[in-house]
Amino acid sequence: MRKLLLLLLLAIFVFPVLFLFLKSITFSWRYPDVLPTAFSMRAWEALASEPQLLPAVGMTLFIGAVVVVLNLLLGIPAALALSWVDFRGKVAVETIFFLPILVPVLAIAMGLHITMIRLGIADHPAGVILIHLLPTLPYTIRVLRGGFDRLDPAWMQLGETLGAGVFRRIATIAVPIMAPSLRSAAVLTFVISLSQYVLTAIIGGGRVTTLPLLYYPFFNSADQAVIAAFSVLFAVLPLLFLFVWETVSSAAGRLLRP
């Protein structure tokens, strides 16, 4: 049963990426050929010859990482308050936190663009990072709130009565219970930030070149091999992020646990 499930998961999630990879290294693979007839690295060469590619990947990773950090810094206190504290107008606050997802972000982006020009952060990574908070923070707060709901404040009090200090209580009670929520929030944030095109284009003005800015225009061409090569690269970045996250958090876990 478990094997079957695993196979199904592989078929749904891994096979399409492999197919894309195959598509990117074939030459003239068309219907009705079932198997590719010729191979060519042309699409990857086209990618490699794009002078803006490496800086764009670097910029994408940098923006994604900063957006994740800001999301956690802003999201943890907000989610904690929503989960643990009862206050007047809580529903209203919750709705406001969720609003950026309900209102089309593009409508807000135009107005924010003017403000950012006046502040001098349009066409700059700082502006792009701020605008990426808009479609990510609501999800982070939601996900983390679910995590805090599972973490009963009584457990923290229990730790306190047993004589554990604040730092130790956080490290040994809160973080292990929150770990899955933190990971979900971080990965979700990273993937959303990674796939922003219009917001980055409007606020970044093309001076902040992220991967989608190079990649999306190719959807306007019939050249599927290049699109496939870009897509493979695109699919690798979240995996890379997950790998780094896991490495860092397990190292941190070893350090924190006494």
């Binding site: 502040l119 001098g120 700059h124």
Partner: peptide, 12 residues
């Protein structure tokens, strides 16, 4: 952190 980010961009 926000002002820090804002400052980053405040190039003339």
């Amino acid at each position: 952190l926000l002002p820090a980010v804002l400052l980053l961009g405040a190039c003339g």
